[in-house]
Each structure stands twice: as structure tokens, then as C-alpha cells.
Design a protein around this nucleic acid. Structure first.
Lengths: 342, 342
DNA sequence: AACGTCGCCGCAAACGTTTGCATTGAATGA
DNA sequence: TCATTCAATGCAAACGTTTGCGGCGACGTT
């Protein structure tokens, strides 16, 4: 079962004309006579001719492929982003090549290099947790490869970026709790090394200030409660043992929120009547707990779409066009559920 | 900022030798003198030469890319599979091109065509829910493109396949409940149109029979409880209102299991003492509920790995080798947690 | 001196496609 | 009748790389 790809040459030989003519006929070039066009088209149809896009890429130095560097495919937020990217890319005739860094810097470097070698037309990047050296990205940028960052952006490189308004998300989550009448609101923060977690914290602080509430540093637990419910449980224990315990918790992510909720219940306290809870990310399970968890929905799909749009725009810009870098900030949405409504 | 890719020709010109010599020098060909090799290698290093893999692909008619057709990237199980595919593919020097069918037949046809046009070396396919016509896949197969199915397989095409042993999963889940002393075990089944759900049901039945328990059709709710917790809740209501209510529920998926658990609690019953529960898929939240939910873990990562391995093996087989199709059946793992242990 | 050997390297073709330019033959105009 | 025009097509180069084959100079052998 040989792989017998039909080429323009095959058609040309069969019809006893030159490959050039076949090429032009297929493209409906005015130079070619209607009769020849018809013959060519019919034979191409009959043989199920498919243009070899590798040859096309080589000639045009355009691969119609965009590369995506992503920290973790399995995370809901990220896979949603891929879905959004894919949506726009396919509609615009691009294929999507995915490379997963697995939160490893070394892997990220290899991935960008591999994508570069595959001559992707552009690249969408969200950096790994480990990444602090940007040489591999600067290399691509200097080579003129169109690049757009999403979610985890690199400030020192001048290109378009798409981020979530984490500040606003933190602000709205906290404001919501305040409006529900909670007064002592704690925050389970994420690792300060990541910009987004600092933003959520700042939004939290702003909401407190705006409503005349004090910022009590003992209520801000800055440890890495990011992805481990056990850490969250331990931190919540600590909060509940304070002389003046909080009456609400804003967690930097849903897993932490759930961990907090479990611990609170273990202490015989009620959610939301004794303690209110808001999480972050709108994981599916937040709609399935008891009570359901109020959370901040991040627009992953839209983020993927927007990033892909910006990238394709940059790729398809004529050389003389000046592409100005833009940073799109997508709004989050507060999803109010049971855990925060008294 | 022109895209100035360094080519072999650039190196050749700079060193005043021929491109052939450069190519051979870089490949450590014995014909080339050590001195020339050294010069070439040093200059290549200095200019950061990266071979143009498109040109390589064209020459060798091998793209070192594998295509993946996947129904839904955002599903945990599928994204885990991608992760496994990616893992093996990158280790073997292949890039991964992802195309999402979104459970649409039309989209799946377009996707396979697009991947074919991109001249992927092979393709991994899991069919969409809608797919009942296999012409587009047969076309690829007849063209000699190596192909491996995973999870949602097509029986009528002769190629390797990787599936989960859903029968065994259903069997083990049910057996576990029986061993825990549950006697009247209900089953929230998935849509019968999908093979895997029928398998889970059959495994359930086998376990009952093997342990001398009757198969009570009133305890098998065959409706689509697949992805909607509300359906599961309603079905559970029905079960609880039976004259002789069940003392355990095996749900075809974790969401349904959770829905059942919530409903049971609403009725003032206890899990696991009054009613035991087992789910399917090992979604993350099953470890976070109260009680935690016993479930059947599907080896998504391993499935991706295995499928990628089989595909690459087929791709790299010499023409004279005869590739025999194999079907790998991966075992599930029962994850015993709180919801099923009295 | 003539011949063979060997180390090192370059030429040219090939992969499939596009495209500027040249070529052909026929039709038109003077 | 000859030059001009035009429609229709072919030629060849190019994209970047690999590779079979042949060339060439240096050396050793008879």
C-alpha cells in the first residue's frame, strides 16, 4: 500500500501539458483557455488531487500553521483556551501545533525551538511557572516570528498580549462579599511569583479600602495554596483559630475554596451563614458542591480566540504595515452561587 | 525586522564551499575533512543555524508530525490523552497537530482532510459522537496513511486501536460494592448508543450474576445521565422512591455519581452507610467531596502514550515489514474512597 | 612514466509548487 | 505580404536540503 500522492506533474503528464499550465488552470488564471481548465479540473477531481502543502510552504515560506506553547493541557482553563485558539485558527485556514511545557523551563525552551524549526508562521505562548529567563522567546522575537502571549505574559517583550483582568476579578469577588454583609474577609493568596495572583490580591485590597474596611495582614495568607487542597485546609485551620476569626474567605482558586469549605464544615460552622466563600476559575465542580461555590469565571475560550485573532492579524500584516502591540484585558465574570449569599 | 532564516547556503557562501559540503559536514559524513567540519560546525553554531524542516519534509516526504483528531479538548479525559500523546511524540521527535471535531461529523471530515493536506506522517483518531459514515477515514487508510484509533474506535477499519476495558471497569466497581456488603445495587447508565456505556453496564451485570445477585431491571436506569447532574438527580429521586430502594449506586460517570450523592443526602440518608456510591472516570473533584467518591480511573495518559507508540511504530516500519494491527485494551483502576466503604 | 588509489569536495538532480519571461501560432491590420 | 498583437502555453528558476556520481590533486606502486 504505497503512499501515492497525486501531484501536479501527474496531471500534466496525463494531459500532455506542462505543470505550469496545470498550476495555472487550477488557480483559474486568465491566461489558460477554458477548455484546458476544464480538462485539468476534471482530472484533478477524478484523481482526488490534493496540493502538497509542504511544497507550498517551502515555496512561499509560509506554513499556515501556528504554534501553541501551553503549560498544561489537562488544566480546564488551558484546554478551554486551546479550544478557543483552534476555533479561530481553523476558520482562518491555519493548523494548530501544540507543545506542552509541563511547567518546565527546559521543556519550554525545547518546545519553542521545535516549533521554530517547524517554521510555524507565528506562536502563542503562555509561560511555564519556572520561566524567568526569556532568551528563548527573545530569540524568536528577534527573528521576527509573530508572537502573542496569553495569560502568563512576559512584560519585557514587546508584542501583543491577552490577559484576564485578575485585579478586577479579585475586586469584584471581594466587593460581592462585602455587599453580602461580610466584614472580616480573609484571602487565601497564590504564590506571589505569579503576576496574576498578586493582581487578585490587589483587587481584594482595593475593594476593602473602597468600602472602608481595614486591611488586616493576619487575614492574608500568602502561601502557595494554589493547587493543593491540603494546604488550603491547613491555612483555613489557622484562620479559624484566630482570636477574631474571619466571616468570609476569598480564595485565589476553586480548589482552595473547596478545601476551606470542607474545613469550615468540619469545625461545625455553616457556609454561607457563618462564613462566606468565593473561589476563582469556575471549575465545574463548584456548581456541584453543597452549597454551590460562588466563583470568578475566567473567559478561557474568548482568551484563546482573541490571542489567535491577534496572532493571525500580525502574521498576515503586509511588511510595510506597522503592527502595534496591544494588550487585551478580558473581564472576568462573577458567578454568584450558594456559598456567599446569606 | 525581516525573517532572516539562516540556511546551509549562507554558511556555504561565507566559507566559500558548496552547500553539499556543508550538509555533509553537519552530518559528520566521513568524506569531509576534520578541518572543514570544524569550520562549518563553528559557523553554524555562531549563526544559530536551524535546519529548515519544511525543506527536509519535502525532500524526504516525511513531516515528523502526527495529527490528532479529538472530539473535545476541554474534557479532562481527552486532554489527558493529548498529554500522553504529546509525551511520546516529542520524545520520538514528532510534533503534534491537534484538530478538534467538537463532536461534529462535518468538522471531523474537514479535520482529517486538513491533516492529510498537511502531510502528517500518521493520524490518531477518536471519532465524534455523530460519526456513522467512515468514508473519510477509509480514504486516509486506503491512501496508506498510518492510523490508530483511540477510545472511540471504528470497527470496520483494519488498524491498531487502543481502548479502555470498560467492561472490566464496570465489573470491578460493582464487585467492590458487593464485597462491601451492598445487596441492591442500582446502575445509572449512559446512552446505549456508545459502546463504552454498554460495556460498563455489561460488567455490572456480570458482577451481579457472578455473586448470585439478581439483575433487577428496575434498578437499571438507562437514560442519558452522561453529563448532566440534574438528570442524575432526577433518576436518583426515582430510585429512592422505589418500594424497595437500592442500597448502592454505580454511576456511569462521576458527575452522575455526585448528583446521586447530593440527592441522597437531601433525603436525609447517609453515604456510605445507607447507600454506597461508585462513579467512573476519577475526576479531580471526586477526591474533594464529602465523603470522597470511589471511582474507576481511566488511564487517559497511558492511552495517549500507547496510541502514539503504536502509530510511530507503524510510521517507522520499513516498507517490507508487515504491520499487524493490534488492539490494546487498557485496564481501569478502582480508586476506593469514602463513598463506598461502610 | 604510467597507472591505481584515496581523500576531499562540487555538480546537479530531486522533492512539488509557483511565476516571470520566452515562445509559439494564429489572427489582425496596413 | 509582412509586421503587430494577442491568446495560450512552456521553460526554467526558485524555496532548502540531500545524495549519487564524478572530478581532481596527491600519493604510492609497478
Amino acid at each position: 500500500m504505497k503512499s501515492n500522492q497525486i501531484t501536479i506533474k501527474d496531471i500534466a503528464r496525463e494531459l500532455d501539458i506542462s505543470p505550469s499550465t496545470v498550476s495555472r488552470a487550477l488557480k483559474d488564471h486568465p491566461d489558460i483557455s477554458p477548455k484546458t481548465k476544464k480538462q485539468v479540473r476534471e482530472l484533478a477531481e477524478k484523481l482526488n488531487y490534493q496540493p502538497n502543502s509542504i511544497a507550498l510552504s517551502l515555496r512561499s515560506s509560509k506554513s499556515n500553521t501556528i504554534g501553541v506553547v501551553i503549560p498544561q493541557v489537562v488544566h480546564f482553563f488551558f484546554s478551554t483556551i486551546i479550544s478557543g485558539i483552534e476555533d479561530i485558527a481553523y476558520a482562518a485556514g491555519y493548523s494548530v501545533m501544540v507543545a506542552q511545557s509541563n511547567e518546565s523551563y527546559d521543556r519550554e525552551v525545547m518546545d519553542t525551538k521545535a516549533l521554530f524549526n517547524n517554521r510555524v508562521d507565528g506562536i502563542l505562548v503562555s509561560m511555564s511557572r519556572e520561566t524567568t529567563d526569556y532568551a528563548h522567546l527573545e530569540f524568536l522575537h528577534n527573528r521576527g516570528i509573530p508572537m502573542v502571549f496569553y495569560d502568563r505574559v512576559c512584560d519585557s517583550i514587546d508584542c501583543s498580549k491577552v490577559v484576564v483582568d485578575d485585579f478586577d476579578g479579585g475586586y469584584r469577588a471581594t466587593k460581592h462579599l462585602i455587599e453580602q454583609g461580610y466584614k472580616r474577609i480573609a484571602h487565601l493568596a497564590g504564590p506571589h511569583s505569579l503576576h496574576m495572583f498578586r493582581q487578585r490580591l490587589d483587587g481584594y485590597k482595593k475593594a476593602l479600602q473602597e468600602h472602608g474596611l481595614p486591611i488586616d495582614e493576619s487575614l492574608i495568607l500568602p502561601e502557595n495554596a494554589s493547587d493543593d487542597e491540603n494546604v488550603a485546609k491547613e491555612l483555613t485551620e489557622r484562620l479559624l483559630n484566630l482570636d477574631e476569626r474571619p466571616d468570609a474567605i476569598f480564595a485565589n482558586n476553586d480548589i482552595a475554596a473547596l478545601g476551606a469549605m470542607i474545613t469550615i464544615k468540619e469545625h461545625g460552622l455553616k457556609v454561607p451563614s457563618d462564613i462566606g466563600i468565593v473561589g476563582f476559575s469556575n471549575w465545574r465542580f463548584t456548581a456541584l458542591t453543597e452549597p454551590t461555590i460562588t466563583t470568578v469565571a475566567q473567559p478561557g475560550f474568548e482568551m484563546g480566540q482573541e490571542a489567535a485573532r491577534l496572532l493571525i492579524e500580525a502574521i498576515e500584516a503586509k511588511d510595510d504595515e506597522v503592527i502595534t502591540s496591544v494588550t487585551k484585558v478580558l473581564k472576568t465574570e462573577l458567578v454568584v452561587r450558594g456559598s456567599s449569599v446569606k
